[in-house]
């Protein structure tokens, strides 16, 4: 055999060998190393979203426990860290839901009356205009020049914390976890238009809070 036939044979052989090999490395599960390997990562992931270190620790602990319970289901398709992160995500969505249903006070309940009396005038000739001091002042939300990233991060989490809990839950799911609207509506049990009203209200408050913090 030579020439073209040989080449085809060789290619076939290579191909069949490649097919026998597992095309990705198998991921093993090693719970004894979890805390040292992924503890910090999962903790930072959680604390960005719940802004409370003891709560975040609890969530990480729950995640590891849930992972231990479910480790037979781990198929090795994804890395351990990705798998644990997906469990952590579920836990965080649960805390959002708890946050959302925690208090009676409800935002964005009226779908048609979108507009928030805290921010806009309601008397007739100027209905719908910004209230004094509630509209934007400075041209830019962020001070120009060197931007202290550390400080910005601190202010963002501070401002998310100061939002009313319902708004905070919706806003964090949308802007930090980047869930799509349908998922958020399903998890929180709200309609799409309701969600948009809540996001709008959350943005009004976030903007105000960040501006205030930067000016001081």
């Amino acid at each position: 055999m030579h020439g073209r036939a040989l080449r085809i044979c060789i290619l076939y052989e290579i191909d069949s060998r490649r097919r026998q090999m597992p095309d990705r490395e198998e991921h093993k599960i090693e719970p004894q190393h979890w805390v040292e390997r992924y503890g910090d990562y999962l903790f930072s992931y959680a604390i960005m979203r719940v802004n409370d270190s003891s709560k975040a620790e609890d969530i990480v602990q729950e995640t590891f426990m849930a992972g231990l319970k479910a480790r037979e289901q781990f198929r090795g398709e994804s890395a351990e860290r990705t798998w644990l992160t997906s469990i952590l995500k579920r836990k965080i969505i649960d805390t959002y839901r708890k946050k959302y249903t925690s208090k009676e006070l409800n935002f964005g309940e009226h779908e048609e009356t979108v507009f928030d009396g805290d921010f806009y005038r309601s008397e007739e000739p100027f209905r719908g205009h910004w209230l004094d001091g509630k509209g934007p002042h400075s041209n830019s939300l962020l001070p120009d020049g060197e931007l202290e990233q550390q400080e910005l991060m601190k202010f963002i989490s501070l401002c998310i914390d100061q939002l009313p809990p319902q708004l905070a839950a919706a806003f964090a799911m949308k802007m930090i976890d980047e869930e799509d609207s349908a998922t958020i509506c399903k998890e929180l049990g709200i309609t799409a238009s309701n969600l948009w009203v809540m996001l709008h209200r959350a943005r009004l408050r976030m903007r105000e809070c960040l501006e205030k913090n930067w000016l001081n």
Partner: peptide
């Protein structure tokens, strides 16, 4: 439209 609706549309 007034500012309330405009600011809603900006995020919408």
């Amino acid at each position: 439209i007034a500012c309330d609706e405009a600011s809603f549309l900006i995020s919408y």
